[in-house]
């Protein structure tokens, strides 16, 4: 069995954005729960924060493929 260490690195690097995205949506949910009429204002902000936090994970997956190397023959 073989694989690429870069993919393990990507898994580790996805922890941070995962926590970040979780925190963003937790804040969004509690904000809407406190003030349901603010949903329309909060939604684009939450999605924007999600997109910015997710960018780090996307960098990770791109770099994981860049540094994946060649399989053993």
């Amino acid at each position: 069995m073989y694989g690429s260490l870069a993919i393990v690195g990507y898994g580790l690097s996805a922890i941070g954005p995962g926590i970040g995205v979780g925190l963003i949506f937790a804040a969004y949910v509690s904000g809407v729960a406190r003030q349901p009429e603010a949903r329309g204002i909060l939604q684009p902000i939450a999605i924007l924060g999600f997109a910015l936090a997710e960018a780090l994970a996307i960098f990770g997956i791109a770099l994981a493929f860049v540094f994946a190397g060649t399989p053993p023959q």
Binding site: M1, Y2, G3, S4, I7, F65, A68, G69, T70, P71
Partner: peptide, 10 residues
């Protein structure tokens, strides 16, 4: 064979 996804042996 993929270098990215570990393949089961055999």
């Amino acid at each position: 064979m993929s270098s990215l996804l570990a393949a089961g042996e055999g």
